[in-house]
Amino acid sequence: TRPDSGGLLCEADLFRARDRFVHSEHTTWAHEWHIPLPNGLSLLLFGYENRAIGDLIDDLAQTTTEAVTIYLPEGRLLTSAREHLRYPELMAGDQFQRGTVTLHVLPFLPQAQFDRLLWLCDILFVRGEDSLVRALWAGKPFIWQIYPTDDQAHWEKLDALLDTCRGDLPAPAFDAWRTLTHDWNRQRLAPESWQNFIEHHAILASAAEKNRLTLAGQTELSNWLVKTAYERLQCRTN
């Protein structure tokens, strides 16, 4: 959102819960929900059907010498994983290994636990509006899969989001983020897309956290509407 608009809705205790989770509660939570703790770089893949999931896992396995953990919740993207990984029986509770990459298929989690899964990961692939907002509040680098429209208007909306969230990101980091986001939405990953993105991970992570703090400082939408309506009424009565 922009400074002249209402801010995102947010639970009053969300950031305190996030801090507690990151600093002390993540191990207990993972045990309670039967989720393996991440080893190395960790990704959440939550999306619609996407042919590029096979390309992404192949790129990770071929270009990454250190461990990578992927969490794939049950849902529409799991259907694509079964097809493009040639593993039709893949289901919640299963583990898939390719090179240094370990993929864990998770059951669909309640909203509060989904937030904690976001907080557990380093990079978030999310879909639609609801999980996008949760990714913004998580303060992690994200790749957004927008729901496509027949008139192709979704590309303008996608770029508007990227531009709004850019902040002071330097051009090389922003271009890497934008390219991977576009590739993921086109369902075709160019060989260098992931590598360019991960080379800028540190600066993208810093920018995502800065964006979270900026959003947290805005007046949330309902209060902003009340304030704006009051100010306009005052102008008319003076």
Results as ranks from 00 to 15, higher is better:
67 A>G: 02
63 T>I: 02
69 T>M: 00
46 F>K: 10
30 A>G: 07
76 R>K: 15
67 A>D: 09
77 L>T: 09
32 E>V: 10
60 L>S: 05
66 E>Y: 05
41 L>Y: 03
21 F>K: 04
46 F>I: 01
44 L>W: 01
13 D>N: 09
36 P>F: 00
57 I>V: 11
47 G>Q: 05
62 Q>R: 11
75 G>N: 08
20 R>N: 13
25 E>L: 10
22 V>W: 05
34 H>W: 07
20 R>G: 13
21 F>M: 05
46 F>N: 10
43 L>D: 02
20 R>T: 11
22 V>Y: 04
30 A>C: 08
53 I>K: 03
59 D>H: 13
62 Q>N: 14
49 E>H: 12
54 G>T: 07
60 L>M: 10
14 L>A: 11
33 W>K: 12
74 E>D: 12
19 D>L: 13
24 S>F: 09
47 G>C: 06
71 Y>N: 01
20 R>D: 12
73 P>H: 03
13 D>C: 02
12 A>V: 08
21 F>C: 05
70 I>F: 01
56 L>R: 08
58 D>S: 13
22 V>K: 11
48 Y>K: 14
73 P>S: 07
45 L>S: 07
58 D>V: 07
40 G>Q: 03
15 F>G: 09
45 L>A: 09
73 P>V: 01
58 D>T: 13
47 G>T: 00
27 T>R: 14
66 E>L: 10
64 T>C: 12
19 D>M: 13
26 H>N: 13
30 A>P: 03
75 G>P: 06
40 G>V: 05
51 R>P: 08
59 D>R: 11
50 N>P: 08
60 L>K: 05
78 L>S: 05
78 L>T: 02
68 V>E: 03
49 E>V: 05
73 P>R: 04
33 W>D: 10
46 F>Y: 11
48 Y>I: 07
67 A>T: 04
57 I>P: 03
48 Y>T: 13
70 I>Y: 00
61 A>K: 02
45 L>C: 10
51 R>L: 14
24 S>W: 08
61 A>R: 03
65 T>G: 12
44 L>M: 05
56 L>W: 07
68 V>A: 04
40 G>Y: 02
31 H>I: 13
56 L>Q: 10
66 E>M: 10
52 A>G: 12
13 D>R: 09
11 E>D: 12
33 W>P: 01
23 H>E: 15
15 F>N: 15
56 L>A: 10
64 T>G: 09
38 P>E: 07
51 R>W: 13
27 T>W: 06
44 L>P: 03
61 A>G: 00
27 T>N: 14
63 T>N: 04
37 L>W: 01
46 F>P: 06
28 T>A: 14
59 D>K: 11
42 S>F: 00
76 R>E: 15
51 R>Q: 15
38 P>G: 06
75 G>M: 02
38 P>R: 07
35 I>W: 00
63 T>K: 06
64 T>F: 09
54 G>C: 03
20 R>Y: 09
15 F>P: 07
39 N>K: 12
30 A>V: 10
22 V>C: 12
50 N>A: 10
41 L>F: 02
69 T>D: 06
62 Q>M: 13
34 H>Y: 08
77 L>H: 10
11 E>H: 11
69 T>L: 00
37 L>A: 09
61 A>P: 00
62 Q>D: 11
38 P>V: 09
14 L>P: 04
13 D>K: 09
46 F>V: 05
16 R>D: 15
25 E>R: 04
68 V>Y: 00
63 T>C: 02
